[in-house]
Write a protein that binds this DNA or RNA. Structure first.
Length: 872
RNA sequence: GGGCGAUUAGCUCAGCUGGUUUAGAGCGUCUGCCUUACAAGCAGAGGGUCUGCGGUUCGAAUCCGUAAUCGCCCACCA
């Protein structure tokens, strides 16, 4: 091992150990009598590729899972992918289009064949990429939202909800995506602020030569106008009561209606009403029985019903109609205007509100227990602020539009009857039976029934994920489900709190009678240095696999985690990964040092004995700290704690103290303690940096085949010797003082020095001072030596005799600076103690602390004054 | 338009129920060092009136109010 390179090379190591873990099935979990720890992965899109968000999210999950495993729990991390209805279908459609094939020319079966081909070709790439990250998923359990078990679960749940009366079908105003050609749920619409125009159009009042002005952002929709509405209290328009106006260009005569929905202050106070293309207008249309003219085709072009511009795209029409209105002098004015426009989450197309027949889930009764669970703390959100967002959404929840006009997905299990109406059933046979029962017609055959063509929203399968992964829908009594469910922690991004988290909670209580998970950890969003969200279109996102290649998986994991407190967005910068990589290198080189030591049957040096004792305390205290932090999901702080333990305490102090002189052997006791500490450090680090820790742990001593650090136990809480830690901290300052003197006086480390100490010095750790400071002798002196360079640690004065190099002026300046500082400090403390109200009101302990501060400062000042006196 | 959150060193953040913090860390910066594990390193140094203003308190980065800036979520103002 002495020939180890001075730099850690992750690539070979990572591949080797991942294969080893897989070969020995170390990620696999089966129910047993240990306590279960379960995480279900937020399933990435089946044909997606890994991005920085996945890296962060899955690193956190892996840390939690690996740690739970090392705590002796039966840890199970279930991976899988989501069929991602709209986005996958869009990809397949685009791919076919590139080959000159039109989706419309294919049958449903033919299209699905292409879609499955695509899925098989690209599906699972992302899961392969997760392995590069070190994800310890139980791959034997890999699931897919459209595999047999998950599909059946979805159908079962649909039928169940239908039986309970929670699913209904009806014509409603929905969000229509004219590119994907499907309805969307409210959550799938992203509102973006856009710079647009407010067009003021003239509507002639029928039978007069007067006109009124109506303001609109969407002039093309005048083709579907069926009324103009004003506020009944608006004095400007009282005269319009009972009148009709002529829709410009179109020439249609429409009534004036009066409703206080209209804001008098906005625009002109006149609102054009287009019931087919605006949610509010739809409500007005409903209230006043207005006709509804659907002027758009599904793809956003003007339909026959529009009467003009038929076949033209909606945005082209907007330009054209403005031209034409201008020609006809029907435009009053055009203003700049900023408004919010809904876009499709998947295709980014501008959403068209559209009346159509869709399927819905009634949400109110589902929401009630789900809201209570989070309010009452049965499920905790980390950070807790997301409870507010959750509560708000849950208390104003609307019905969920679950049908999508797609082929890729779970087809709705409803069959339409020849005479109208439909039945809902789990399969064709049952559908037929129900159809016969419902119609009373025993002659019906399957060919008389027509299966509803729509598919279900992707999230209608994802919301079952924690249940369906363990087959809890189809076989609620099965052993696995009873063992693994409810799962422990869920790690996800906050942007899918409604899409997924809230709905999983609802599904958990509704279909399993229990919460789906105990804690939800919300990650931040990964942003670039300028704070912009990383995205493909901006091209500001590094390829995670390139990063792994460059910095090693452990380096990248560590880099991300260092900057990722829960719920905080992280500003990504390569320097984070560099820090991670450097740390790997530090660990690597510490190992090189230790493995390079020869041991011999010699007596343990005092310094080494003390260092071993001290590090034992230091380790114990960090373990307590880390356990506490991890229990609060303060993962980055826990990582920082072990980072500092390793680097600042173990490498910089412990190893330097016990390190034998050049070519010298080390005693066995110290060697074994060192190996033990290194082992413990590797264990603490393993959840964060799985590869390098496994590599070194395997080299640390003989291991059996199949043995792994993955199953080594994390050290448990233990009382630390705080006094020893404090004494050592004092020692560090003494050594730093010696180093400073060396630096100032340009004395090389190899020249040994004498250290003089005055009263108050505790000699217990002297052997370490001797070694670390290269001190040949520590002598207690009773009087200040004017020919020595001094420094004060705590209330003890130290000095190094340097007859020819000491400048008394400099020494005095140093002391006077200290004098000034502590005089001020003491004054502050005395002021506080002199305040009667403070002494009377503050708790005993706080006053005691101040008194201690006072006496310490006084002693220190006495030391300083004495030193000054001796020099003057 | 409602709600929520943030504002602490150049950057990213700790600082949990006010009191050993005249404020800490990591990174970066600066100054020395190729000292026999590591220059992806070592030894040091500098850097903040805790966004402003008011209040509560013996005591405020911490609690309250207010203003500003930023961010997020929700909402049917054409």
């Amino acid at each position: 091992m002495n020939e180890l390179a001075s730099k850690y090379d992750p690539s070979a190591v990572e591949e080797k150990w991942y294969a080893y873990w897989m070969e020995h099935r170390l990620f696999h979990s089966e129910p047993d009598n240990r306590e279960p720890y379960t995480i279900v992965i937020p399933p990435p899109n089946v044909t997606g590729v890994l991005h920085m968000g996945h890296m962060l999210n899955n690193t956190i999950q892996d840390i939690l899972v690996r740690r739970a495993r090392m705590e002796g729990k039966n840890a199970c991390w279930v991976p899988g992918t989501d069929h991602a209805a709209i986005s996958t279908e869009a990809k397949v459609v685009a791919k076919l289009a590139a080959e000159g094939i039109n989706k419309q020319d294919l049958s449903r079966e033919q299209f699905l064949e292409h879609a499955w081909d695509w899925t098989h070709k690209y599906g699972g790439i992302i899961l392969e990429q997760l392995r590069k990250l070190g994800a310890s998923c139980d791959w034997e359990r890999t699931a897919f939202t459209m595999d047999e078990q998950r599909s059946q679960s979805v159908i079962r749940v649909f039928c169940d909800l239908y039986e309970k009366g929670l699913i209904y079908r009806g014509v409603r105003m929905v969000n229509w995506d004219p590119v994907a050609l499907t309805a969307l749920s409210d959550e799938e619409v992203i509102y973006k602020e856009e710079q647009s125009k407010l067009y003021h159009l003239r509507y002639m009042v029928e039978g007069t030569d007067k006109y009124i002005v109506v303001a609109t952002t969407r002039p093309e929709t005048i083709l579907g106008d069926t009324a103009v509405c004003v506020n009944p209290n608006d004095e400007r328009y009282g005269w319009l009561k009972g009148k009709r106006v002529i829709v410009p260009m179109v020439g249609r005569s429409v009534p004036i209606i009066m409703d206080d929905y209209v804001e008098m202050d906005f625009g002109t106070g006149c609102l054009k009403v287009t019931p087919a293309h605006d949610v509010n207008d739809y409500m007005l249309g409903d209230k006043y029985n207005l006709p509804s003219i659907d002027i758009f085709n599904d793809n956003g072009t003007i339909s026959e019903a529009g009467g003009m511009y038929v076949g033209m795209d909606r945005f082209d029409v907007r330009k054209q109609i403005m031209e034409d209105l201008k020609q006809a002098d029907l435009i009053e004015k055009i203003e700049d205007y900023v408004n919010k426009v809904g876009h499709s989450e998947r295709t980014d197309a501008v959403i068209e509100p559209k009346l159509s027949m869709q399927w819905f889930v009634k949400m109110e009764s589902l929401a009630r227990p789900a809201l209570a669970a989070v309010e009452e703390g049965d499920i905790s959100f980390v950070p807790a602020k997301f409870r507010n967002i959750y509560r708000h959404w849950m208390t104003s929840i609307k019905d969920w539009c679950i049908s999508r006009q797609l082929w890729w997905g779970h087809q709705i299990p409803a069959w339409h009857l020849p005479e109208g109406g439909y039945v809902v059933a789990e399969n064709e046979e049952q559908a037929l039976l129900k159809a016969i029962e419902k119609t009373g017609n025993p002659e019906l055959t399957l060919s008389d029934l027509r299966r509803d063509p729509d598919c279900l929203d992707t999230w209608f399968s994802s919301w079952l994920w924690p249940i369906s992964l363990f087959n809890g829908i189809l076989e609620p009594e099965n052993e696995e489900f009873k063992y693994y469910y409810p799962t422990s922690d869920l790690v996800t991004a906050p942007d899918i709190i409604f899409f997924w988290v809230a709905r999983m909670i609802m599904a958990g209580y509704e279909f399993a009678g229990k919460k789906p998970f105990g804690n939800v950890y919300f990650t931040g969003i990964v942003r670039d240095k300028k704070g912009r969200k990383m995205s493909k279109s901006l091209g500001n996102s590094p390829d995670p696999l390139d990063l792994i290649e460059k910095y090693g998986a452990d380096g990248v994991r560590m880099g991300l985690m260092l900057a990722a407190p829960a719920g905080h967005d992280i500003m990504y910068d390569d320097s984070l990964c560099e820090q991670g990589r450097n740390f790997c290198n530090k660990i690597w080189n510490s190992f090189r040092l230790i493995k390079g030591w020869e041991t011999a049957e010699i007596e343990q040096p005092q310094s080494a004995r003390l260092a071993v004792e001290w590090f034992d305390a230091r380790l114990a205290s960090t373990v307590v700290e880390m356990n506490d932090l991890m229990s609060k999901f303060r993962i980055s702080e826990a990582l920082m704690a072990v980072y500092r333990l390793f680097w600042d305490e173990f490498s910089a102090w412990y190893l330097e103290v016990v390190k034998p002189g050049y070519g010298q052997p080390l005693d066995k006791t110290t060697y074994e303690a060192t190996i033990h500490y290194f082992d413990m450090l590797l264990r603490l680090l393993h959840p964060f940096m799985p590869f390098i820790t496994e590599e070194l742990w395997q080299h640390l001593c003989e291991r059996k085949d199949g043995e792994s650090i993955m199953y080594a136990r994390i050290p448990e809480d233990r009382q630390a010797d705080e006094k020893l830690i404090a004494d050592f901290d004092h020692l560090k300052e003494v050594v730093a003082g010696i180093r400073t003197v060396r630096k100032q006086k340009q004395i090389p480390q190899r020249d040994s020095l004498t250290l003089n100490v005055r009263e108050g010095h505790d000699s217990r750790l002297d052997p370490i001072i001797t070694k670390m400071g290269n001190i040949s002798e520590i002598s207690v002196i009773s009087e200040k030596d004017p020919a020595a360079a001094g420094f004060i640690v705590g209330k003890v004065e130290y000095s190094i005799p340097l007859t020819d190099k000491v400048n008394v002026e400099e020494e005095l300046a140093k002391l006077n600076k200290d004098l000034e500082y502590y005089t001020k400090f003491l004054a502050g403390v005395e002021k506080k103690l002199g305040n009667e109200k403070f002494v009377a009101n503050a708790p005993e302990a706080v006053v005691a602390i101040e008194r201690k501060k006072k006496s310490d400062a006084e002693e220190k000042l006495a030391t300083i004054r004495a030193a000054i006196a001796a020099l003057s």
